[in-house]
Design a binder for these strands. Structure first.
Lengths: 208, 208
DNA sequence: ACCTGAACACCGTTCAAGT
DNA sequence: ACCTGAACACCGTTCAAGT
């Protein structure tokens, strides 16, 4: 192959949605979200920009795919644990790791709902463990919500600070701050579960 | 005025940085970040796009101004309190309110460092109260960091959910979830302050 | 079936020119 | 001093045309 000219010939151009999205993620990781244009992405794949529309509906669709791809990486550590606290904590730590590996994709998280099926599956495992530990559905939703909020907020702060000179408190300290907040939230969740929901004078049986 | 043609004549065109940024914020609040272009903004102000460059270095500069303007709104409630917990909690609640009033500006928070002087001043008041309560500088920074992360994370989730049909749990419940996480964090901060920092065998004076 | 060229309606930004 | 016209190098996207 590449017999015509020794110029560019970057790839055999067997395009596919996967290849398009993968290359887009590589481009964004390397040069930032603003550097992603259909024309530049096409060039990277050795193809005209218009060819991409065969595999991607839109630029918005491409961005959705990027968002999903990052969430798809999610590989929580303590996969075999059944302790809700370890599962939920592990999910948060895995999310932090993933987000910090793709900091340029973070703005998409402010715009797109979390719907990647892989991520949803991971969340389901946490939900099951919490249900098994006696949490009620509303409590479970709240717990996961709260931990997710904190984690994405942290990733945003952290990714910002990484560019700044002044507050380059070393990574160890930022990680410690994350850990501190996460443990505080897990404590809060555990405590709320042990206590009754609100101030109701005579709770019947075990709920309020 | 408006004697030439009864067509458009939107403003006397006495441009200023303030007017440019204010109109930009109005445009973004109304139509989203993507709708903001120099040409459209110029049109709204009754002026050609190029005139804006007299008052704004760049589009990036304009976005920075938007970010700062939103943070400038920050008006925490319990302004006269000296209780650190009330001050820090009030700051978080005020930030939440402001962010939810300008949801389209949220993506900028993933990209720009928080540097608006008004916001910094508010933060300084919280820092002073915490120092007065006996927190050490590192603890103070960590506390404010953690609460800020959580709040911005929450705002992102909340703003997303507001568009979605399925999870439109009513506002009251979302606010309750925010409150729950915030209180958990404040509890954690208070507890960490009462306890020793790490496992140090013989702490001196009053912290054990 | 898959890719392309040309075209359309937009961008941000510069610069010399108008008043 | 402040605003503008024309221009440049880019965008996303459509559509008819090529192979």
């Amino acid at each position: 192959m590449a017999t015509k000219r020794g110029e560019n010939v970057p790839a055999p151009a067997g395009l596919s949605r996967e290849r398009v999205c993968g290359e887009a993620l590589a481009l964004v990781d390397a040069e930032g979200l603003e550097a992603l244009s259909m024309r530049r992405l096409g060039a990277r794949l050795g193809v005209e920009a218009m060819s991409l529309y065969r595999h991607v509906r839109n630029k918005a669709d491409l961005l959705d795919a990027l968002h999903a791809a990052v969430l798809g990486d999610l590989k929580p550590e303590g996969g075999d644990a059944r302790d809700w606290r370890e599962l939920l904590g592990g999910l948060a730590r895995a999310l932090r790791t993933t987000l910090l590996q793709h900091p340029h994709v973070l703005p998409l998280f402010t715009t797109r709902p979390v719907r990647a099926p892989e991520a949803v599956a991971t969340v389901t495992r946490v939900q099951d463990a919490m249900a098994h530990a006696g949490f009620r559905p509303a409590e479970i939703e709240q717990a996961i919500y709260v931990v997710g909020m904190f984690t994405i907020g942290h990733a945003i702060f952290d990714a910002q600070g990484a560019h700044r000179a002044a507050e380059r408190a070393d990574d160890r300290r930022r990680a410690a701050t994350f850990r501190f907040g996460l443990e505080a939230l897990l404590d809060g969740i555990a405590r709320a579960h042990r206590r009754p929901r609100r101030q109701s004078p005579i709770p019947r049986s075990h709920s309020s």
